[in-house]
Nucleic acid binder design. Structure first.
Lengths: 204, 204
DNA sequence: CTATAATGGATAGCGATACTATCTAAGTCA
DNA sequence: TGACTTAGATAGTATCGCTATCCATTATAG
């Protein structure tokens, strides 16, 4: 398969494919001559993953780290999630106060060393954002967040496929990011349903 | 309070504040002369909301729609959430197939007319993204998503403050967007905790 | 076996976004 | 009076994710 055919089948323009190769998102084709290369199904699949990530709002740099993790995952399973999260998480901010985040995380079963600091920083940043806007999660709501999120994460981790290493890696790495838009979209639907039920519209 | 003081107290540069006024995110100060204006606490609060939204990844245009909703909310409470969601949701895509999304939404208690199409389109887009990447949510996981998300939404809607209209509006509008980073960050922590418990690290 | 077209590689340009800098005329304040 | 600030306008900047154009090389159709 030449680049033009890859472009047509994926409906990604050929110059964009070249760009992804330049940026290290997509491996080069196998060279058949100094100015010729051949692409195969693996390029097709990888290209679809790249597009899905980019369309989910993942940047080029983050996507590169994601596919590097897919291609070269850590040997131990307990390091895989951390690697996937590291690909899409800004580096730790030392100036951030992690105490509130740690207190929250404790409600998820967190203990130091069970989870890396970068991810905890994410919680701290989110809390800071809420606080700066003068918004606070009600005391009755936060426990529900923790409990429900924990339930979601448990189901996701329990669902890690065991048939092959590759499928487990792909599930963990892609699922940690690609499921986010789905969860947020489902939340909006659920909010509207719940709101409709509570404020049962007098309509007209 | 003059613009320079507003800038100093909010640590947002004065030119940026001018830019927000130009873009309609922040109302003008009250004019004391043709080239002078006075800002007050309401500008300060609004500015903090704007920064929180923008730092959560909301664009200028979406932020403008959000603050317009805050300033001029729909009269009926059951329309408020829809207005808030509309501010940050792309317009409905007619070419999208909503059947899979509707089936999922049914698991949240959705019925036609309980929730607008734009939000359902969001679910459809998310599903499409997953599918294009060759990723699928395991059959055991999806029900947990639906159940847990519904629980979250119910708690959030039950937590709508009833003391004043303004606080209800601010809670619903800001909460629908600003809580997203928190939920995603908590999910990452929970995933790492759950993963650590399942693949209890044999370490080195 | 030449003419046309496509390829890989490199470089430069584009359009959108979120600012940022500069200028001017008008106004404040010591 | 005179240094400083302001609003408003315009233009410039940095980043991002492409996109367009070039070139020498190479497949391929007639």
């Amino acid at each position: 398969m030449k680049i033009s055919e890859l472009a047509k089948q994926s409906s990604v323009p050929a110059p964009t494919i070249k760009y992804y190769i330049r940026e290290g998102l997509l491996p080069e084709g196998t060279r058949t001559a100094p100015t010729q290369a051949e692409y195969d199904e693996s390029h097709m699949r990888r290209l679809r993953v790249i597009r899905a990530l980019i369309e989910s709002g993942v940047s080029i740099a983050e996507t590169r780290r994601m596919v590097e993790t897919l291609d070269d995952p850590p040997a131990q399973p307990h390091l895989l999630l951390g690697a996937a999260h590291a690909a899409v998480t800004p580096p730790v901010d030392e100036t951030l106060d992690l105490t509130a985040a740690a207190r929250l995380a404790a409600g998820l079963g967190w203990e130091p060393e069970k989870c890396d600091d970068a991810v905890l920083c994410g919680v701290a940043r989110a809390l800071q954002g809420l606080e700066k806007a003068g918004f606070s999660v009600p005391d009755e709501v936060m426990p529900v967040y923790l409990e429900s999120i924990r339930r979601i994460a448990d189901a996701e981790i329990a669902g890690v496929p065991t048939d092959s290493v590759e499928s487990a890696v792909s599930y963990v790495v892609l699922g940690s990011v690609l499921a986010e838009p789905l969860l947020l979209a489902l939340r909006r639907v659920a909010q509207q349903v719940s709101s409709a039920e509570r404020f049962s519209g007098p309509a007209s």
